[in-house]
Structures are given as C-alpha cells and as structure tokens.
Computed example of a mutant assay.
Amino acid sequence: MKVTVKSWTGVATWRWVANDDNCGICRMAFDGCCPDCKLPGDDCPLVWGQCSHCFHIHCIVKWLHSQQVNQHCPMCRQEWKFNNK
C-alpha cells in the first residue's frame, strides 16, 4: 500500500537548557523573555558566567552597568566573567 501525504504542518517547541528555570535578576522564566523584550528567543538570549550562573543577556548587562567598581555575579558574588563555551 502506498500513502501520499497531501499536506503537512510541523509544530515545534523550544526551551533554553539552563541550570535554573528563572533569571536570578528579573525572576522571569527563561522560556519567556526579560522585561525589556517583547518576544523570547534569539533577541533575548541567555548568557552564562564562569561561575555557571545564567541570566538573560539584557538583565546581566544592566546589572553590570549598575555596579560602581567591581562587577560581580548577583548570585554568588564572584567576579563576573562571561563563559565562552
């Protein structure tokens, strides 16, 4: 028996693979987006520090700019360095 597919609609979902479900700064879900963005995904990516903590890129950049002298991870207070995986 031979079957012919006349129409096909693909449906997919995506999830960030992070060490937590929520951003430690804005407390919004990683599957969503930060308060500054309208849509999740590539426009609101996640970034990891060498300490392994993960944040929305917009949240950690704001956090780092708000620090006067030393730029530390808001979770563990280690010096913040972006992890170049």
Score class of each variant (00 low, 15 high):
residue 29 A to Q: 12
residue 67 Q to D: 09
residue 51 C to A: 09
residue 33 C to D: 05
residue 75 M to Y: 05
residue 77 R to S: 14
residue 80 W to N: 07
residue 75 M to L: 12
residue 71 Q to A: 12
residue 78 Q to E: 15
residue 21 D to N: 12
residue 5 V to A: 07
residue 64 L to G: 05
residue 52 S to I: 02
residue 36 D to K: 14
residue 29 A to D: 15
residue 31 D to E: 11
residue 31 D to I: 03
residue 69 V to S: 15
residue 64 L to Q: 04
residue 53 H to E: 01
residue 47 V to H: 00
residue 72 H to S: 15
residue 79 E to L: 13
residue 4 T to A: 12
residue 57 I to L: 13
residue 24 G to A: 09
residue 20 D to L: 01
residue 79 E to M: 12
residue 59 C to N: 06
residue 66 S to E: 12
residue 76 C to E: 07
residue 45 P to K: 00
residue 4 T to V: 13
residue 43 D to L: 10
residue 44 C to K: 02
residue 39 L to R: 13
residue 79 E to D: 11
residue 43 D to M: 11
residue 75 M to A: 07
residue 21 D to Y: 09
residue 34 C to R: 02
residue 37 C to D: 13
residue 23 C to D: 03
residue 46 L to Y: 01
residue 12 A to D: 11
residue 34 C to G: 04
residue 21 D to C: 11
residue 79 E to I: 15
residue 28 M to S: 12
residue 13 T to L: 09
residue 82 F to T: 13
residue 29 A to W: 02
residue 83 N to V: 04
residue 85 K to I: 01
residue 23 C to W: 00
residue 62 K to E: 10
residue 43 D to K: 13
residue 55 F to C: 06
residue 83 N to G: 03
residue 35 P to T: 11
residue 84 N to W: 04
residue 8 W to T: 07
residue 14 W to P: 01
residue 53 H to Q: 04
residue 50 Q to F: 03
residue 63 W to C: 15
residue 14 W to F: 14
residue 66 S to V: 03
residue 7 S to D: 15
residue 40 P to D: 05
residue 75 M to E: 15
residue 50 Q to G: 05
residue 17 V to M: 08
residue 68 Q to D: 13
residue 71 Q to V: 12
residue 57 I to E: 14
residue 75 M to W: 03
residue 65 H to F: 06
residue 18 A to G: 02
residue 5 V to W: 06
residue 69 V to C: 07
residue 61 V to K: 10
residue 46 L to I: 14
residue 21 D to R: 08
residue 39 L to K: 15
residue 5 V to P: 00
residue 10 G to C: 10
residue 39 L to E: 15
residue 43 D to E: 12
residue 29 A to M: 06
residue 28 M to H: 12
residue 63 W to S: 15
residue 69 V to N: 08
residue 64 L to C: 08
residue 41 G to V: 05
residue 15 R to T: 15
residue 57 I to T: 09
residue 10 G to Y: 09
residue 71 Q to G: 10
residue 70 N to M: 14
residue 56 H to A: 10
residue 53 H to V: 00
residue 43 D to Y: 04
residue 3 V to R: 11
residue 38 K to W: 08
residue 24 G to K: 02
residue 10 G to K: 11
residue 46 L to S: 00
residue 72 H to A: 14
residue 29 A to P: 05
residue 84 N to F: 03
residue 52 S to N: 08
residue 18 A to L: 02
residue 70 N to G: 11
residue 68 Q to V: 09
residue 74 P to L: 02
residue 7 S to I: 01
residue 2 K to W: 05
residue 19 N to K: 01
residue 33 C to W: 03
residue 58 H to M: 14
residue 57 I to F: 08
residue 8 W to G: 04
residue 15 R to P: 00
residue 5 V to R: 06
residue 67 Q to G: 05
residue 60 I to H: 01
residue 55 F to L: 06
residue 6 K to D: 14
residue 51 C to R: 04
residue 67 Q to E: 13
residue 9 T to D: 13
residue 26 C to S: 13
residue 23 C to H: 03
residue 81 K to I: 14
residue 21 D to K: 13
residue 76 C to R: 08
residue 16 W to V: 08
residue 72 H to Q: 14
residue 46 L to E: 02
residue 75 M to F: 08
residue 51 C to T: 06
residue 46 L to N: 01
residue 12 A to E: 10
residue 50 Q to E: 13
residue 5 V to E: 07
residue 37 C to P: 09
residue 82 F to E: 10
residue 32 G to M: 05
residue 41 G to D: 06
residue 52 S to Q: 09
residue 49 G to P: 03
residue 29 A to V: 02
residue 85 K to N: 15
residue 62 K to V: 01
